[in-house]
Amino acid sequence: MLWYLVKRIIWMAGTLWVVFTLTWFLMRAVPGGPFDAEKKIPEEIRRNIEARYKLDQPLHVQYLDNLAHVIRLDFGPSFKLLDYPVNRVIAEGFPVSASLGVFAMIFALTLGLTAGVASAIGRRTAYDYGFMALATVGVAVPNFVLASLAIVLFVFYLGWFPAAGWGTLRQIALPAICLGAPFAGYIARLTRTGMLEVLGQDYIRTAYAKGLRHRRVIVRHALRGAILPVVSYLGPAVAAILTGSIVIERIFALPGLGIHFIEAATQRDYTLAMGMVLVYTFLLFVMNTLVDLSYGLIDPRVKLK
């Protein structure tokens, strides 16, 4: 277990270093400095700016210097947002993105598991067909399409939700639902398949035979066996939620990390973009490790190596 964690951390450090090095050299490969696009500035000022961002030193010195800073979790100043360090942008955007992602995940799990269990128990009933049709739609519709249709319908026609803003639960609800819907659909399908498989097994019959109530058999015995595919899906789901949140944040104008990332990319703010890439890589790694660990907790047969 401990050895597994140590190994994961070493892998993560390696991956982050590869990502850092690749993006760093790509950044420097772009001809001209980040300040060339502006109108011509006097030589002294240009030299001052370059000294400020340490652009006047040899390449390997710059690389090592940047690397040392990044290791100390200092991503440096943003190239475009003046007097705004990348760390502050991340610190401000992260809570928004994180809560959006957590709410979306909670929504997806609640709805997906309930719908999956309900349609497995009521197999070949109207519930089953209804839920599964809904799940297929949820999986296939791109989330930005879903979000835009939801805005037209729920915000402007029906007026159930506010159009923008961030903070109250009512404001979080619609973005979180739009972000979570595809995952709810997928989880529902996985749960249904898993449940159907488990419900036919001997230990379920045993549980019924020893007189347990229906509810208890489903929740304590069947669901625990059926949930494994869902848990292993959570890793990719977290990655997809991270990317999906970019679009959702943009459509609903939420002040999260994703919107800064798009801005950094379109404005060519390289330090900011690199900080974001590293943060997302880190998040993805942590989430995947957590998923692997929880897999071992749920199923005692799984041994971590």
């Binding site: 892998w11 993560m12 991956t15 590869v18 990502v19 690749l22 993006t23 790509l26 990655a239 991270l242 990317t243 970019i246 990332f261 798009i262 990319a265 379109t266 060519r268 973009a273 690199m274 974001m276 890439v277 997302y280 890589t281 998040l283 993805l284 790694f285 995947n288």
Partner: peptide
């Protein structure tokens, strides 16, 4: 384990 969307956006820019 690299979040590709971000790298791709970076590459394309």
């Amino acid at each position: 384990s690299v979040p590709f969307l971000f790298v791709v956006i970076f590459l394309i820019t």
